[in-house]
Design a binder for these strands. Sequence first.
DNA 1: TACACTGGTAAGTAACCAATTACTTACCGG
DNA 2: CCGGTAAGTAATTGGTTACTTACCAGTGTA
Lengths: 211, 211
Amino acid sequence: MLIETTSTAPRLSGDARRAEIIDVVLRLSAERSPGLITTAEIARSLGLSQGALFKHFPSKETIWLAVADRVATTLLATIEQAAEQATAPLAALRAIFLAHVGFVIEHPGTPRFIFHELQRAVDSPVKLRLRGMLANYRQLLLRLLEAAAQRGELDESINQQAAASLFIGSIQGLVMQSMMVGKQFAMREQAVAVLAILERGIARQTTGNAA
Amino acid sequence: MLIETTSTAPRLSGDARRAEIIDVVLRLSAERSPGLITTAEIARSLGLSQGALFKHFPSKETIWLAVADRVATTLLATIEQAAEQATAPLAALRAIFLAHVGFVIEHPGTPRFIFHELQRAVDSPVKLRLRGMLANYRQLLLRLLEAAAQRGELDESINQQAAASLFIGSIQGLVMQSMMVGKQFAMREQAVAVLAILERGIARQTTGNAA
DNA sequence: TACACTGGTAAGTAACCAATTACTTACCGG
DNA sequence: CCGGTAAGTAATTGGTTACTTACCAGTGTA
């Protein structure tokens, strides 16, 4: 059940090893709380000695920063790509939601890492990086909401800031629930049902029937 | 800016001291991540020696369990009281939402403690206690949603499980955002705007105008 | 008045952690 | 094929953590 000691053949290039280290931190984050992950554990998962890590990163903090960077880049790329493929703003929002949910299903360590680091009081570089990522995310949502509003697809009474909060928050809520219930939580199915309520909440009421 | 070393006069009764310890853990949780709170820090905040804590709790784990117990009890009491004062189911849901938001504004350490403990992989007694609390919370929401549905106040297409998820998740999202932005986040105002969208999402569409 | 109990202190201890050190080995260009 | 560099090891360091132990002072009661 635990992550295997993947006794990797030693002697990798620096770039490859750094990528491996980032990978394994995210893999471990899916099981343990990121705050409990030690450098010894990372090294053991890679079949390395603990000291070897510091050939590639000057400190644990910089490892965490690299992980945050990876998380921010890949998550943003995922949702931006989803948004681009859609034609209408509301369809883009739906595509982002589903892409985001798919992303966290595929990379369960990612949201746990984000949650854990955002929870820290101090404004560490790691927290700032993640905060910046979420600010970008939010801006993209607000652009789409504004576009939908101008097309008359949005209800006039909607507070767009609140809608963006609710959008991101609802995904966080799904993740939180899967952390509670565990592996057997049907996140994808719950996600589409949640999305349906969300869309009803912001979209202009259709006078006709929805069928 | 840090929590004062409240140099409490020593020699309190066991019950009083235990309550103080629980209080201070929650107070510290509002600033630091609960995972970083040490027994030495708790003792210092109370003006006690570190060893004195273990006169009242056999281990740190049992302190955490007592905190979880306090959190579960007070939060559930808050939302149940809010629900009782309302007459109609949808009004009760609204009252719960606002009461919950008020609770986390008043006790900022509470949601941070909950988040942090739920994130742990192992099914510790602490996690089980909090999970049980959230299960109760969810059941209350589902009862109200079902009652609203039978009164015809709910849209027929609504997945009630998803609605409950979205309800709790949206509060978690607000908390998460306040952890990012910091003290100056207007949570209460955002909360009512979010709630408006939520209600639009689940309530039966009024055929008349809303004004 | 003796004495057990209770809440407290101060000084430990073993375990663990990130980071450093001294040294070794694989790889690669001239 | 040789010399430098990058990637690795094993052992150790200083610091921190939860918890323990030995001792102490006040209080109430038999």
